[in-house]
Design a protein around this nucleic acid. Structure first.
Length: 566
RNA sequence: UGGGGUAUGGUGUAACUGGCAACACGUCGGAUUCUGGUUCCGAAGAGUCUAGGUUCGAGCCCUAGUACCCCAGCCA
């Protein structure tokens, strides 16, 4: 069965158009892209869009895509992030082969190129402090002023820069700057900083360096070294493109990469900002980077989202240059679409209500054959034990049902899925008047859920044999933010956190086959939604995370009814 | 008169080189269904930021506006 992405027509967007034209007109032989994360945090859904774009283009056009860590700032970067990022990209389904690179691999070459720039009189060592540089830079509407250090001799610049590398100066004492144009309307061209002194250990190069190139001095040159043809980044780097090009043109680099920018992804009810995600974790609003509510790849993986759904979503939303906010419903649709096709069906009861089948022999147990996935016959069937005492969902019974409720009610007959038709005869209540048990009878002729006489029922319920059901904890997840646009209108983004984003249910039951449910495999609890065992789940204490609910027309009706009857 | 971008249904995208504004999500109906799921059928919803202009014909070309986004890290 082809996936939607395979049967979808060839996707086109402005970047693919450019790549196709470059190939067609012979400007390049092979397309080479790269995904360039900084290892200072975890990857999120926004990164997934970029990963799918870069790796997707490479595979569609028969090229290759590199994974390159942009590790030029040792203060923020850690090996932990490098490992997590690699795992996330692999999980998403992409393979960089042997093309794993680090900007730090190029530090020596970058240093040589900096020397070249100095020798060409196009870079200088500045003595100004960070504050002074800011002052000299001017403002958005006023030009900047040239640094007093700008006219230093090439020899002195060379000497100073070498001594910067040698560790003779403390952090901030000097900086290497390009000599471009302090009056440029583009602030990035006002003698941008190329190197700064940072006495800090780097996760890869350790103490080898105490000067580090800035993003601007590292990125384009790294692209050139790797023969990247199309360097794709987000819109906020548009203003850097003139500098990217200036460096490429003024340095003896081995290839001529081109930068193209696209709009980053925004999702409703979600925040895709490393800074905010870091705070959510640090301030304990969530269980960690991989909390099932987090939009991180590790979070959605723990939540049970299949990678294929994530990829389908990336294809659905397209790539453009206009700022936009995609509704999460589209992501949820992509996930449900994959899960509907692939997830095995299982029985679980979240809010159990006891049902006793009065005419069912005491002590008898039957193994009912239940289909694993109606969308995939090859998934086969399984046996689920049936007996006299059962659990059903409390929501599936109403003592005084409204007209549109067609589940179980006094005197009404429904089907227990793949088992029998049952009729409710009596409602047993406790002293407080709350329902504790239903007394029902079953029709032996309807075994397997069939109706030999053609009798029809309006509802089919899931159920569990009370004696065989295994206890479980189930965590229900909703949107992390209740507002579709968290932090909009200058609101504090944390005020928009949804207080009900996680509901932990204890006292749930699952069918016996779920006792050893593999971690990370998402199944459908019939009629309820998609769920997967949490990594913290053990056979002794089962914990399931709800990936998504099923679409629920009844819940929608109820919600509408609430408005209709004030 | 800083610089750089972007405007198409509620949302995201599409419309080859000027030729009936299309697809998906969502919404609303209906059919099917041993999941109020899935599937199927149908509908509503934009006349393309505004105002002019060119043209037989403009989302696309021209002119003038408007709105929104990004930039003043030794972050990326």
């Amino acid at each position: 069965m082809p996936s939607p992405s395979e049967r979808a027509p060839e996707r086109t967007d402005f970047i693919r158009d450019i790549v196709a034209a470059d190939l067609r007109e012979g400007r390049i032989d092979t397309v080479v892209t790269r995904f360039p994360p900084e290892p200072n945090g975890y990857l999120h859904i926004g990164h997934a869009k970029s990963i799918c774009l870069n790796f997707g283009i490479a595979s569609e056009f028969g090229g290759r895509c590199h994974l390159r860590f942009d590790d030029t700032n040792p203060i923020k970067e850690e090996q932990e992030y490098i490992d997590a990022i690699e795992a996330d990209v692999r999980w998403l389904g992409f393979d960089w082969g042997e093309h794993l690179y680090f900007a730090s691999d190029y530090f020596e070459q970058l240093y040589e190129w900096a020397l070249d720039l100095i020798r060409a009189g196009k870079a200088f060592v500045d003595d100004l402090s960070a504050d002074e540089i800011r002052e000299y830079r001017g403002t958005l509407t006023e030009p900047g002023r040239e640094s007093p250090s700008r006219d230093r001799s090439i020899e002195e610049n060379l000497d100073l820069f070498e001594r910067m590398r040698a560790g003779e100066f403390p952090n901030g004492a000097h900086v290497l700057r390009a000599k471009i144009d302090m009056a440029s309307g583009n602030i990035n061209m006002r003698d941008p900083v190329l190197y700064r002194i940072v006495h800090a250990a780097h996760p890869r190069t350790g103490d080898e360096w105490c000067i580090y190139p800035t993003y601007d001095f590292a990125h384009g040159q790294s692209d050139a070294i790797e023969s990247i043809t199309h360097s794709l980044c987000t819109l906020e780097f548009q203003d850097h493109r003139p500098l990217y090009d200036w460096l490429i043109e003024n340095l003896p680099v081995p290839s001529r990469p081109r930068q193209y920018e696209f709009a980053r992804l925004n999702l409703t009810h979600t925040v895709l900002s490393k800074r905010i995600l870091l705070r959510l974790v640090a301030e304990g609003h969530v269980r960690g980077w991989d909390d099932p509510r987090m939009p991180t790849l590790s979070g959605i993986r723990r939540r049970g989202f299949p990678a294929e759904g994530m990829r389908d979503f990336a294809n659905m939303i397209g790539v453009a240059r206009a700022d936009s906010v995609v509704e999460v419903e589209m992501l949820e649709h992509a996930v449900r679409d994959v899960l509907n096709r692939q997830a095995l069906r299982r029985f679980a009861v979240l809010d159990p209500l006891k049902v006793v089948i009065e005419n069912y022999p005491e002590g008898q147990v039957e193994q009912m054959e239940v289909v694993n996935n109606p969308e995939d016959e090859s998934a086969g069937t399984r046996a689920v034990p049936f007996s006299r005492e059962l659990w059903i969902e409390r929501d599936d019974f109403m003592e005084d049902p409204p007209k549109k409720f067609f589940r179980l009610a006094p005197g009404r007959e429904v089907r227990l899925r793949s088992a029998y038709f049952v009729t409710c005869n009596e409602v047993v209540k406790d002293a407080d008047g709350s329902i504790v048990e239903l007394r029902c009878t079953y029709d032996p002729e309807t075994r397997g859920g069939a109706s030999p006489d053609g009798r029809r029922v309006k509802a089919t319920l899931h159920w569990l044999s009370a004696a065989h059901a295994v206890p479980a904890e189930v965590r229900l997840y909703g949107h992390l933010f209740s507002s579709p646009c968290p932090g909009a209108n200058a609101r504090d983004i944390f005020e928009d956190l949804n207080p009900d984003s996680e509901t932990v249910l204890s006292g749930c039951f699952a069918e016996p086959s779920l006792a050893d449910a593999p971690i990370g495999e998402t199944v459908q609890f019939e009629r309820l939604g998609y769920f997967c065992a949490d990594p913290g789940s053990t056979p002794g204490k089962l914990v399931f995370n709800r990936t998504l609910t099923l679409k629920d027309t009844w819940a929608k009706l109820q919600a509408q009814g609430r408005h209709d009857t004030p």
